[in-house]
């Protein structure tokens, strides 16, 4: 009987070892995923900063006036073309 118990305990030990290893592997996989998310987040922060600066720059009165001037010129050219 005691040998049977010893065998079961041994099997339990092996199962625990396997479970621990699996858990650790899962942990590693999760950490790798988190690391990827952290890096991706950082990349998006960089992009966000770039875009916000770009938006800021494109919304200055100077820039908007230039834009409108270009539209007006284009419209004038279009009308001139239509008249011809």
């Amino acid at each position: 009987m005691r040998w049977a118990i010893a065998g079961l305990l041994f099997a339990l030990m092996v199962a625990l070892t396997l479970a621990t290893a699996a858990l650790r592997a899962d942990n590693v996989r999760a950490r790798k995923r988190v690391e990827g998310v952290v890096r991706a987040l950082q990349d998006r922060k960089v992009e966000l900063t770039r875009l916000s600066m770009k938006r800021l720059d494109s919304a200055t009165p100077q820039h908007l006036a230039e834009l409108q001037w270009r539209w007006l010129q284009r419209e004038a050219q279009r009308r001139a073309g239509g008249e011809q």
Binding site: V28, R31, K32, V34, E35, R39
Partner: peptide, 15 residues
């Protein structure tokens, strides 16, 4: 801080 495996793969450790 982060961990790096033998292939250079990175593990998250802390912010």
């Amino acid at each position: 801080r982060f961990l790096r495996d033998g292939r250079g793969g990175r593990y998250f450790v802390a912010p």
